[in-house]
Amino acid sequence: MRTSPPLRPRRRGIGWAQRLEITALSGPAILMFLAFVIFPVVMAAYYGFYRWKGFGVPTNFVGLDNYVTILQDKPFREALLHNGLIVVLSLVLQGPIAIGFALLLNQRMRGQSVIRVLIFVPYVIAEVIVGTAFSLMLQTSGAVNGVLQSIGLGSLQQDWLSNRAIAIWTLGLILTWKYVGFAVILFLAGMQNIPEELSDAAAMDGASYWQTQRWITLPLLMPTIRIWAFLSIIGALQLFDLVYIIWGQYVSSTAGTSTMATYMVTEGRNAGNYGYGNAVAVVLFIISMTVALAYQRFVLRRDTEGALTGGR
Protein backbone atom coordinates (compact mmCIF):
# COMPACT_ATOMS: atom_id res chain seq x y z
CA MET A 1 0.00 0.00 0.00
CA ARG A 2 1.77 3.07 -1.23
CA THR A 3 1.19 6.48 0.22
CA SER A 4 0.30 9.62 -1.63
CA PRO A 5 2.49 10.97 -4.41
CA PRO A 6 5.32 13.27 -3.41
CA LEU A 7 3.94 16.41 -5.01
CA ARG A 8 0.97 17.71 -3.10
CA PRO A 9 0.43 21.44 -3.15
CA ARG A 10 -1.71 21.69 -0.04
CA ARG A 11 -1.23 19.27 2.74
CA ARG A 12 -3.69 20.83 5.16
CA GLY A 13 -6.78 18.85 4.23
CA ILE A 14 -9.64 20.35 2.31
CA GLY A 15 -12.07 23.10 3.07
CA TRP A 16 -15.79 22.67 3.37
CA ALA A 17 -16.44 24.33 0.02
CA GLN A 18 -14.21 21.83 -1.68
CA ARG A 19 -15.82 19.02 0.22
CA LEU A 20 -19.22 20.18 -0.96
CA GLU A 21 -18.05 20.23 -4.55
CA ILE A 22 -16.66 16.71 -4.37
CA THR A 23 -19.95 15.57 -2.89
CA ALA A 24 -21.72 17.19 -5.82
CA LEU A 25 -19.49 15.27 -8.23
CA SER A 26 -20.06 11.87 -6.71
CA GLY A 27 -23.55 12.59 -5.42
CA PRO A 28 -25.62 11.30 -8.36
CA ALA A 29 -23.76 7.99 -8.36
CA ILE A 30 -24.17 7.60 -4.60
CA LEU A 31 -27.86 8.41 -4.89
CA MET A 32 -28.30 5.71 -7.54
CA PHE A 33 -26.41 3.30 -5.34
CA LEU A 34 -28.67 3.96 -2.38
CA ALA A 35 -31.86 3.79 -4.44
CA PHE A 36 -31.08 0.71 -6.51
CA VAL A 37 -28.83 -1.41 -4.32
CA ILE A 38 -29.01 -0.61 -0.63
CA PHE A 39 -32.73 0.08 -0.40
CA PRO A 40 -33.85 -2.93 -2.49
CA VAL A 41 -31.54 -5.27 -0.60
CA VAL A 42 -32.87 -4.09 2.75
CA MET A 43 -36.45 -4.31 1.55
CA ALA A 44 -35.92 -7.80 0.08
CA ALA A 45 -34.55 -8.98 3.41
CA TYR A 46 -37.57 -7.45 5.16
CA TYR A 47 -40.23 -8.85 2.81
CA GLY A 48 -38.53 -12.24 2.89
CA PHE A 49 -39.79 -12.75 6.45
CA TYR A 50 -43.42 -12.37 5.42
CA ARG A 51 -46.01 -14.33 3.55
CA TRP A 52 -47.10 -11.52 1.29
CA LYS A 53 -49.00 -11.20 -1.96
CA GLY A 54 -47.63 -7.81 -2.91
CA PHE A 55 -50.52 -5.59 -1.81
CA GLY A 56 -50.37 -3.17 1.08
CA VAL A 57 -48.18 -3.57 4.12
CA PRO A 58 -47.08 -7.13 4.85
CA THR A 59 -48.56 -8.35 8.11
CA ASN A 60 -48.27 -12.12 8.06
CA PHE A 61 -44.85 -12.52 9.67
CA VAL A 62 -43.54 -16.05 9.20
CA GLY A 63 -39.96 -15.71 10.39
CA LEU A 64 -37.61 -18.03 8.56
CA ASP A 65 -40.41 -20.15 7.10
CA ASN A 66 -39.83 -18.96 3.55
CA TYR A 67 -36.15 -19.84 3.78
CA VAL A 68 -36.87 -23.26 5.20
CA THR A 69 -39.34 -23.89 2.38
CA ILE A 70 -36.83 -22.77 -0.25
CA LEU A 71 -34.07 -24.99 1.02
CA GLN A 72 -36.41 -27.97 1.26
CA ASP A 73 -38.12 -27.41 -2.07
CA LYS A 74 -36.99 -29.98 -4.59
CA PRO A 75 -37.34 -27.66 -7.63
CA PHE A 76 -35.09 -25.12 -5.93
CA ARG A 77 -32.43 -27.71 -5.16
CA GLU A 78 -32.60 -28.88 -8.74
CA ALA A 79 -32.26 -25.30 -9.96
CA LEU A 80 -29.23 -24.83 -7.73
CA LEU A 81 -27.74 -28.04 -9.10
CA HIS A 82 -28.34 -26.82 -12.66
CA ASN A 83 -26.61 -23.53 -11.84
CA GLY A 84 -23.68 -25.56 -10.55
CA LEU A 85 -23.58 -27.66 -13.70
CA ILE A 86 -23.72 -24.53 -15.85
CA VAL A 87 -20.78 -23.04 -13.93
CA VAL A 88 -18.73 -26.20 -14.53
CA LEU A 89 -19.78 -26.51 -18.18
CA SER A 90 -18.95 -22.86 -18.86
CA LEU A 91 -15.48 -23.23 -17.39
CA VAL A 92 -14.52 -26.54 -18.98
CA LEU A 93 -16.02 -25.84 -22.41
CA GLN A 94 -15.11 -22.20 -22.88
CA GLY A 95 -11.77 -22.07 -21.06
CA PRO A 96 -9.67 -24.52 -23.12
CA ILE A 97 -11.31 -23.49 -26.41
CA ALA A 98 -10.68 -19.82 -25.73
CA ILE A 99 -7.08 -20.32 -24.63
CA GLY A 100 -6.30 -22.46 -27.67
CA PHE A 101 -7.95 -20.05 -30.02
CA ALA A 102 -6.32 -17.01 -28.48
CA LEU A 103 -2.91 -18.71 -28.88
CA LEU A 104 -3.66 -19.34 -32.55
CA LEU A 105 -4.85 -15.78 -33.09
CA ASN A 106 -1.87 -14.35 -31.27
CA GLN A 107 0.28 -14.89 -34.34
CA ARG A 108 0.63 -13.19 -37.63
CA MET A 109 -2.33 -14.35 -39.61
CA ARG A 110 -4.32 -13.10 -42.53
CA GLY A 111 -7.80 -11.86 -41.67
CA GLN A 112 -6.99 -11.74 -37.98
CA SER A 113 -8.82 -8.51 -37.23
CA VAL A 114 -11.91 -9.71 -39.09
CA ILE A 115 -11.93 -12.93 -37.08
CA ARG A 116 -11.58 -10.99 -33.86
CA VAL A 117 -14.61 -8.86 -34.65
CA LEU A 118 -16.59 -11.89 -35.80
CA ILE A 119 -16.11 -13.94 -32.65
CA PHE A 120 -17.00 -10.93 -30.51
CA VAL A 121 -20.30 -10.34 -32.31
CA PRO A 122 -22.28 -13.01 -30.38
CA TYR A 123 -21.24 -11.32 -27.16
CA VAL A 124 -23.03 -8.08 -28.06
CA ILE A 125 -26.15 -9.90 -29.24
CA ALA A 126 -28.83 -10.11 -26.55
CA GLU A 127 -29.44 -13.46 -24.88
CA VAL A 128 -33.08 -13.18 -25.90
CA ILE A 129 -32.11 -13.12 -29.55
CA VAL A 130 -29.53 -15.86 -29.21
CA GLY A 131 -32.17 -17.92 -27.45
CA THR A 132 -34.80 -17.30 -30.12
CA ALA A 133 -32.41 -18.09 -32.95
CA PHE A 134 -31.17 -21.30 -31.37
CA SER A 135 -34.64 -22.51 -30.52
CA LEU A 136 -35.52 -22.01 -34.17
CA MET A 137 -32.57 -24.12 -35.26
CA LEU A 138 -32.78 -26.79 -32.58
CA GLN A 139 -36.44 -27.70 -32.86
CA THR A 140 -37.16 -31.33 -33.56
CA SER A 141 -37.92 -30.44 -37.18
CA GLY A 142 -35.33 -27.64 -37.23
CA ALA A 143 -32.20 -26.95 -39.23
CA VAL A 144 -29.73 -28.90 -37.09
CA ASN A 145 -31.66 -32.14 -37.36
CA GLY A 146 -32.26 -31.38 -41.04
CA VAL A 147 -28.54 -31.07 -41.72
CA LEU A 148 -27.80 -34.25 -39.79
CA GLN A 149 -30.39 -36.06 -41.90
CA SER A 150 -29.04 -34.77 -45.18
CA ILE A 151 -25.43 -35.72 -44.49
CA GLY A 152 -26.43 -39.24 -43.52
CA LEU A 153 -26.14 -38.88 -39.78
CA GLY A 154 -29.86 -39.16 -39.21
CA SER A 155 -29.26 -41.44 -36.26
CA LEU A 156 -27.72 -38.52 -34.37
CA GLN A 157 -30.94 -36.52 -34.51
CA GLN A 158 -32.13 -35.50 -31.09
CA ASP A 159 -34.75 -33.56 -29.27
CA TRP A 160 -32.02 -31.10 -28.39
CA LEU A 161 -34.18 -28.95 -26.16
CA SER A 162 -36.68 -31.26 -24.53
CA ASN A 163 -34.64 -34.39 -23.88
CA ARG A 164 -33.69 -34.17 -20.23
CA ALA A 165 -30.42 -36.01 -20.76
CA ILE A 166 -29.24 -33.57 -23.41
CA ALA A 167 -30.83 -30.20 -22.71
CA ILE A 168 -28.22 -28.96 -20.25
CA TRP A 169 -25.44 -29.82 -22.70
CA THR A 170 -27.29 -27.94 -25.41
CA LEU A 171 -27.45 -24.98 -23.05
CA GLY A 172 -23.72 -25.31 -22.41
CA LEU A 173 -23.00 -25.22 -26.13
CA ILE A 174 -25.22 -22.19 -26.72
CA LEU A 175 -23.49 -20.39 -23.86
CA THR A 176 -20.17 -21.31 -25.42
CA TRP A 177 -21.26 -19.84 -28.74
CA LYS A 178 -22.33 -16.63 -27.08
CA TYR A 179 -19.56 -16.07 -24.56
CA VAL A 180 -16.38 -17.76 -25.77
CA GLY A 181 -15.56 -14.78 -28.00
CA PHE A 182 -15.43 -12.54 -24.96
CA ALA A 183 -12.94 -14.92 -23.34
CA VAL A 184 -10.79 -14.97 -26.49
CA ILE A 185 -10.68 -11.16 -26.64
CA LEU A 186 -9.82 -10.98 -22.95
CA PHE A 187 -7.03 -13.55 -23.33
CA LEU A 188 -5.67 -11.83 -26.42
CA ALA A 189 -5.51 -8.57 -24.49
CA GLY A 190 -3.71 -10.41 -21.70
CA MET A 191 -1.22 -11.94 -24.13
CA GLN A 192 -0.38 -8.55 -25.57
CA ASN A 193 0.80 -7.49 -22.15
CA ILE A 194 3.33 -10.31 -22.03
CA PRO A 195 6.70 -8.89 -23.07
CA GLU A 196 7.86 -10.40 -26.34
CA GLU A 197 11.44 -10.58 -25.07
CA LEU A 198 10.46 -13.53 -22.89
CA SER A 199 9.32 -15.78 -25.70
CA ASP A 200 12.14 -14.51 -27.91
CA ALA A 201 14.64 -15.51 -25.26
CA ALA A 202 13.00 -18.91 -24.83
CA ALA A 203 13.11 -19.48 -28.58
CA MET A 204 16.79 -18.59 -28.58
CA ASP A 205 17.39 -21.13 -25.84
CA GLY A 206 15.89 -23.74 -28.13
CA ALA A 207 12.40 -24.01 -26.68
CA SER A 208 9.80 -25.28 -29.13
CA TYR A 209 6.65 -23.31 -29.86
CA TRP A 210 4.56 -25.47 -27.55
CA GLN A 211 7.14 -25.35 -24.76
CA THR A 212 7.13 -21.56 -24.98
CA GLN A 213 3.35 -21.44 -24.72
CA ARG A 214 3.23 -23.97 -21.92
CA TRP A 215 5.95 -22.52 -19.72
CA ILE A 216 5.85 -18.81 -20.55
CA THR A 217 2.59 -17.60 -22.10
CA LEU A 218 0.22 -19.73 -20.03
CA PRO A 219 1.66 -18.95 -16.59
CA LEU A 220 1.77 -15.23 -17.38
CA LEU A 221 -1.80 -15.41 -18.64
CA MET A 222 -3.09 -16.91 -15.40
CA PRO A 223 -4.23 -13.60 -13.85
CA THR A 224 -6.39 -12.93 -16.91
CA ILE A 225 -7.72 -16.49 -16.84
CA ARG A 226 -8.64 -16.14 -13.17
CA ILE A 227 -10.55 -12.92 -13.82
CA TRP A 228 -12.35 -14.51 -16.76
CA ALA A 229 -13.29 -17.55 -14.67
CA PHE A 230 -14.65 -15.21 -12.03
CA LEU A 231 -16.86 -13.30 -14.47
CA SER A 232 -17.96 -16.60 -15.95
CA ILE A 233 -19.00 -18.06 -12.59
CA ILE A 234 -20.94 -14.95 -11.59
CA GLY A 235 -22.72 -14.92 -14.96
CA ALA A 236 -23.60 -18.61 -14.73
CA LEU A 237 -25.10 -18.19 -11.27
CA GLN A 238 -27.39 -15.41 -12.49
CA LEU A 239 -28.44 -17.00 -15.76
CA PHE A 240 -32.02 -16.19 -16.64
CA ASP A 241 -32.81 -14.77 -20.10
CA LEU A 242 -31.54 -17.62 -22.23
CA VAL A 243 -33.24 -20.33 -20.21
CA TYR A 244 -36.48 -18.40 -19.95
CA ILE A 245 -36.64 -17.76 -23.68
CA ILE A 246 -35.73 -21.24 -24.83
CA TRP A 247 -37.42 -23.37 -22.25
CA GLY A 248 -40.23 -21.13 -21.11
CA GLN A 249 -41.20 -20.80 -17.52
CA TYR A 250 -42.60 -24.26 -17.00
CA VAL A 251 -40.69 -26.50 -19.34
CA SER A 252 -37.30 -25.57 -17.90
CA SER A 253 -37.76 -27.55 -14.72
CA THR A 254 -38.79 -30.67 -16.61
CA ALA A 255 -36.06 -30.30 -19.22
CA GLY A 256 -33.48 -29.99 -16.46
CA THR A 257 -32.34 -26.46 -17.21
CA SER A 258 -34.14 -24.33 -14.61
CA THR A 259 -31.97 -21.89 -12.68
CA MET A 260 -32.34 -20.05 -9.39
CA ALA A 261 -33.45 -16.94 -11.27
CA THR A 262 -36.15 -18.73 -13.27
CA TYR A 263 -37.28 -20.36 -10.03
CA MET A 264 -37.51 -16.91 -8.43
CA VAL A 265 -39.67 -15.57 -11.25
CA THR A 266 -41.95 -18.60 -11.43
CA GLU A 267 -42.49 -18.97 -7.71
CA GLY A 268 -42.34 -15.31 -6.77
CA ARG A 269 -43.61 -13.01 -9.47
CA ASN A 270 -45.74 -15.28 -11.61
CA ALA A 271 -47.31 -17.00 -8.62
CA GLY A 272 -47.82 -13.66 -6.86
CA ASN A 273 -45.95 -14.77 -3.73
CA TYR A 274 -43.82 -11.68 -3.38
CA GLY A 275 -42.65 -12.47 0.13
CA TYR A 276 -41.42 -15.85 -1.03
CA GLY A 277 -39.89 -14.40 -4.21
CA ASN A 278 -37.94 -11.88 -2.17
CA ALA A 279 -36.65 -14.63 0.05
CA VAL A 280 -35.43 -16.43 -3.08
CA ALA A 281 -33.76 -13.18 -4.19
CA VAL A 282 -31.99 -13.00 -0.84
CA VAL A 283 -30.80 -16.60 -1.17
CA LEU A 284 -29.56 -15.96 -4.71
CA PHE A 285 -27.87 -12.81 -3.48
CA ILE A 286 -26.17 -14.56 -0.56
CA ILE A 287 -24.98 -17.47 -2.70
CA SER A 288 -23.55 -15.18 -5.39
CA MET A 289 -21.88 -12.85 -2.91
CA THR A 290 -20.41 -15.77 -0.96
CA VAL A 291 -18.97 -17.29 -4.10
CA ALA A 292 -17.71 -13.88 -5.28
CA LEU A 293 -16.09 -12.92 -2.00
CA ALA A 294 -14.58 -16.38 -1.47
CA TYR A 295 -13.14 -16.27 -4.97
CA GLN A 296 -11.79 -12.77 -4.34
CA ARG A 297 -10.30 -13.86 -1.05
CA PHE A 298 -8.68 -17.11 -2.10
CA VAL A 299 -8.05 -16.92 -5.83
CA LEU A 300 -7.99 -13.34 -7.03
CA ARG A 301 -6.31 -11.84 -4.03
CA ARG A 302 -2.81 -11.44 -5.40
CA ASP A 303 -4.13 -10.22 -8.75
CA THR A 304 -6.45 -7.53 -7.47
CA GLU A 305 -4.38 -6.33 -4.58
CA GLY A 306 -2.70 -3.85 -6.85
CA ALA A 307 -5.94 -2.74 -8.46
CA LEU A 308 -7.76 -2.34 -5.18
CA THR A 309 -5.34 -0.69 -2.87
CA GLY A 310 -2.49 0.37 -5.12
CA GLY A 311 -2.62 3.16 -7.61
CA ARG A 312 -2.55 6.33 -5.65
Binding site: M264, A281, F285, S288, A292
Partner: peptide, 11 residues
Protein backbone atom coordinates in the same frame (compact mmCIF):
# COMPACT_ATOMS: atom_id res chain seq x y z
CA UNK B 1 -20.36 -8.32 -8.42
CA UNK B 2 -23.92 -8.00 -7.18
CA UNK B 3 -26.28 -10.30 -9.05
CA UNK B 4 -28.59 -7.91 -10.91
CA UNK B 5 -31.10 -10.68 -11.22
CA UNK B 6 -31.59 -10.76 -7.48
CA UNK B 7 -32.21 -7.01 -7.33
CA UNK B 8 -34.92 -6.80 -9.95
CA UNK B 9 -37.79 -8.13 -7.87
CA UNK B 10 -37.10 -5.85 -4.87
CA UNK B 11 -36.65 -2.87 -7.21
Amino acid sequence: LIPNTALVLPI
